[in-house]
Amino acid sequence: MSALLEVSGVSKSFDGFKAIDNLSFSIGEVELRAVIGPNGAGKTTFMDLVTGKTRPDSGTIRYGSLSRSLTGMSEARIAQAGIGRKFQKPTVFEDQTVVENLVMALKSPRNPFSVLIRRPPQRDRAATLAEQIGLDDALDRRAGELSHGQKQWLEIGMLLAQEPRVLLVDEPAAGMTTAEREKTTQMLVDAARTRAVVVIEHDMDFVRRLNCRVTVLHEGCVLAEGPLDHVCADPRVIDVYLGRDDDA
């Protein structure tokens, strides 16, 4: 499997604190990956580095078949290149309807003339996306009226509308009902059939449902990697993240 995103020897410090320490790992072109680890492990900083919000002190981040360097590229250029990010708190246009949110997010020419002549196809594409994210019966509802879980789905749909090759998702299951979590799991699994999807998550039950390769971060570097049962059996992961259930 060829790597779509490759992080090599990346380090990043903030006021003397090393948030990322010689981090190296890669994500395949079509892959679902979960990234777990204790608070302060470097998970958010990793996403900041990949998306250009933060610059690495050293190391390289390469992306795509030509292995272009993301270092030095702006956040906007990285997004345009095909890397999308969903933050933990859903960010949608609450005064706009579901379909309006999706239409605004669609990857298409951004000029007044193109909007005028492409409006019906855009709504059709938005309706197809709404069906994929389970909101096809809420097209004309204002986003502000949706439940927390539905807003999460809408934001995922808005990112999918951009046709990203890499989708970074931060704690998508937080605050969801059991039914919403099950639907979110399927949504991410489906999305990963055609792109790379990286999920940062603390909920181990949710990670297990994803049934994917897991990377454990600790103190800014990879502590363990592999199937969930494999990393959960690693004594180092137990010590720093999962904890022990010792009777003595």
Rank of each mutant, 00 (worst) to 15 (best):
S2Y: 05
S2L: 05
S8M: 12
S11N: 13
K12H: 14
S13T: 11
F14H: 10
F14S: 07
G16L: 07
F17R: 15
A19I: 02
I20Q: 01
I20D: 03
L23R: 07
L23C: 11
L23E: 07
S24Q: 11
S26F: 00
S26Q: 14
V30A: 12
L32Y: 12
L32C: 09
I36S: 06
G37N: 00
G37P: 03
P38L: 05
P38T: 05
L49S: 02
G52V: 10
P56R: 10
G59P: 12
R62Y: 00
S69K: 03
S69I: 06
S74F: 04
A76N: 12
Q80R: 15
I83N: 01
G84F: 06
R85N: 06
Q88T: 06
P90L: 06
V92N: 08
T97W: 08
V98F: 06
V98D: 05
N101Y: 03
A105D: 07
S108Y: 09
S108Q: 15
S108D: 14
N111S: 12
P112M: 13
F113S: 02
R118N: 15
P120I: 06
P121H: 01
D124R: 15
D124T: 14
A127K: 14
A127D: 04
T128H: 12
L129W: 12
I133A: 08
I133Y: 03
L135W: 06
D136L: 01
D140C: 01
D140H: 13
R141L: 13
R142W: 00
R142Y: 02
R142C: 00
E145L: 13
E145R: 12
H148S: 10
K151Q: 15
L154H: 00
G157Q: 01
L159H: 00
L159P: 06
L160I: 08
L160A: 09
L160W: 05
Q162G: 14
Q162F: 00
Q162E: 13
E163A: 13
P164W: 03
V166H: 01
L167Y: 04
E171I: 10
E171A: 10
E171R: 08
P172W: 08
A174W: 02
G175F: 02
G175E: 02
G175R: 11
M176L: 15
T184R: 03
T185F: 00
Q186K: 13
M187P: 00
V189E: 12
D190V: 06
T194D: 15
V197A: 01
I200V: 15
E201S: 11
H202N: 11
M204V: 14
V207I: 13
V207D: 09
L210G: 06
L210Y: 04
L210N: 00
N211D: 15
A224H: 10
G226V: 04
P227G: 13
P227T: 09
D229R: 08
V231K: 00
V231M: 04
C232A: 15
C232I: 09
A233R: 11
P235S: 04
P235K: 06
P235A: 02
R236N: 11
V237P: 10
I238V: 15
D239R: 15
V240E: 02
Y241Q: 08
Y241M: 05
L242I: 10
L242Q: 05
G243A: 05
D246V: 14
